[in-house]
Amino acid sequence: MVKPRVLILRVAGTNCDNETEWAFRLAGAEPERVHINRIKRGEKKICDYQALVIPGGFSYGDDISAGKVLVNEIKHNMGEDIDRFTGEKKPLIGICNGFQVLVKAGLLPWQGKQVVSLGWNDSARFEDRWVYLKTEKNASPFLKGFPSVIKLPVAHAEGKFTVDSGTTLKKIEDGKLVFFRYCSPDGGDAEYPHNPNGSAGAIAGLTSANGLIVGMMPHPERALLKCFYPDANEGGDGEEDGYGCRFFRNIVEYIK
């Protein structure tokens, strides 16, 4: 059987592309890391792939603000192709820097003008830590088989979920567009450090209404195996394949 092809977009400063590639390979796909220049030159076309992933990193150094320059580049070079891609119900996934790109490009929570953002952490600095995440009820097929609370690491400086207005937040909640929410170990409300950045509504990830465009600050590609869980050694409950792995399997399952 032909394995589904996944395009992992690379630009100057992308740095989670290798492990994301490994994640999709483990999940049974045929991933390919592709530099944006090759798309601009027409050597590669995103329509030849079944899923498109913008991985973590510091695209263009996150100069100006996180993901901003890449948003500009994508809009001017791949904007229409991406609209066509998502129109065909192919998954578009943004992790960390990729999530920042998706919201600033106006692809999440709905396609249009930018209505939410990811601002500087309340701590005013980059932080790498593991968090508890509540898996929300939404249309996304990628949360299939998840328990209500899982653990994943976050590592970012600009991850504070911010909305342009209360109306937007209400529309997101009413429309069931929250993918993950930061929570306390028992699934309750999260305060710092459990809400690591001060996000509005403790929102850690969003999904489009059809569940196929998904963006999140946490890094599932860093939780593919139990050994990566910081409490693996403490008798923690991470399964042999971590929940990160299940997330990627769900995507591959969907596009197969």
Partner: peptide
């Protein structure tokens, strides 16, 4: 001034 270099790239991208 790496940010300045990046802004230049972005300005070019924007046409």
């Amino acid at each position: 001034d790496s940010v300045a270099d990046t802004v230049k790239t972005a300005v070019k991208d924007a046409g």
